[in-house]
Amino acid sequence: MTATRSVSVAVDGGREAGMSATAIATTATARSGEGRIGLRANLRHIGALVRRNLLQIKQDPESMFDALLMPVIFTLLFVYVFGGAVSGNQHAYVNYMIPGLMAMMGMNIAMAVGTGINTDFKTGVMDRFRTMPIARSSVLIAKIVVEVGRMLIATAILLVMGFILGLTVQTSVLHLLAAVALAMVFGASLMWIFTLLGLTMKSAQAVQGVAMIVLMPLQFGSSIFAKPTTMPGWLQGFTKVNPLSSLADANRNLINGGPVAHSALITLAWAAAITLVTAPLAVAKFRKKA
């Protein structure tokens, strides 16, 4: 197949002397039949697009404020404002809340995927990508790779803040890493929801607005900040089915010790379900968007 294509280009090259020397070279590389994009080429494209996203951050360092400062501000605020009230003292609350905040952090960062994609479509750069011989999904995948990276940074800062405020890992480093991984997996699944939002909403501001309305009840109506047993019955019901509670519970027990399997499995099931439903929808929407 590759040979056939090269020949046809070479025939053309004879006529368009001078111009197509490079064209032939370009055509000869990374070409498989019927224009399909091979795995290596696909990875190269994703790499180039990840680089683009990193350069955007370099150019606009303020865009990292959410990942860098949010964990610092949230831990300080929540530990010192709620610590005394919820757990009697700040120290005890640190070990309760930090694992929960890991769940919240992922959510807030995942939101950036939606606003970023919305902006890309506004500026026309997406038209460029979509008229190039690359898999259209590589634009989305690159964005998600970068956001998972930002989530890791935010989580690392969160943990450093936690240790400064007296967080103690009562299990093992491996358990701690498992907690981080669980939060990442769940956060990555959320990115598909925000991608879908970003593709549907008219503006980046609208994406942010809708996201906040959805996120606030999910985050506070969970076991992240306070024990659900202190809440009224109807709210307890909501916190029970809220996947953020499962993630917070799993992480808490991974760090403080306790049964993990049940809440971890529920979290993973949620992550899988969210991805299975929203990822194909997002990719379809992305392909069709005019």
Binding site: R52, L55, Q56, Q59, D60, T123, G124, V125, M126, D127, R128, T131
Partner: peptide
């Protein structure tokens, strides 16, 4: 193909 539209389709931050 190459396409140049009415709106600059380059990444403005790069």
């Amino acid at each position: 193909i190459g396409l140049t539209g009415q709106y600059a389709s380059v990444d403005e931050k790069l």
